[in-house]
Design a protein around this nucleic acid. Structure first.
Lengths: 133, 133
DNA sequence: ATGCACCCTCTAGTCGCTAGAGGGTCAAGC
DNA sequence: GCTTGACCCTCTAGCGACTAGAGGGTGCAT
């Protein structure tokens, strides 16, 4: 089977950088692996599963702390998954807010850019709009 | 006129924190002001104008480096404002990309959340979806 | 035995602030 | 004139989530 991975193998298997894996270990997100005779980290299937979980959650924009919580919850399999639902919903709401903010920003910027007459800086509407009221 | 502001006055006049103003000075974004007998920073109209410019550009999501560039350009008033336009457009594109990314994320999350049966963690679709393929 | 890819630890840097320690200054009220 | 309290000063470290680099060791093929 695919037991015993070096950090490089684990990295390419999960699309993570080697340094990031070491960082996850350092902050206690990934359990410390065994070491080889030459002091190399040797990872097993469980590490691969954990790191895949972390990667996906991070790709979905969950913070490290949220990932930590989700992993803690995922390990208590007999419990209600309401807490999981709460975290996911909080995150969705945060994303919705971010989208709204950025959309407002984009239209402000669009208006600014449209107004630019493309002449000298002296009568550039963009610079003007940024200046004092 | 409104010459000679203390850092606190400048802060409240521009909606900036005092620490942030000192930070802007430290990184060379805001020119170093004169000092009073008691070593207090004394700001003038020009500082107010500059800081207002910075604040607005930052509120529109421009990075510190972009603000620095924009301010440099704004000072060369006889030149073409094409460079200004380029920066603004780059920034608008970056925002558009961010919105697209977040929107994709939001719908992934929505699907995930909808699928949750709200039972135990063992058969929680959210946890499952985060697990290894 | 030599080269090269990979691994190790440790430290510092990124961005844009923010917070805190440990002090000095200034104006008002008593 | 003395105290109180709001303001100011410098310096350093912290946030999140990595990333980069120095300076070295390991493992394997040629």
């Amino acid at each position: 089977m695919s037991e015993k991975l070096t950090i490089g193998k684990l990295a390419s298997a999960t699309g993570t950088k080697v340094e990031t894996i070491r960082y996850y270990e350092q902050i206690g997100l990934l359990p410390t692996p065994a070491r080889s005779a030459g002091n190399y980290r040797t990872y097993e299937g469980e590490h691969l599963r954990r790191l895949s979980f972390i990667r996906r959650a991070r790709d979905l924009g969950f913070s490290i702390e949220q990932v930590r919580e989700l992993m803690g919850l995922a390990d208590r399999r007999e419990q209600s998954c309401m807490a999981v639902d709460v975290i996911a919903n909080q995150h969705r709401d945060a994303i919705a807010r971010k989208i709204a903010d950025l959309t407002a920003l984009a239209s402000e910027l669009d208006a600014l850019i449209d107004s630019c007459s493309r002449n000298t800086v002296a009568d550039c509407r963009i610079i003007e709009a940024l200046g004092p009221s």
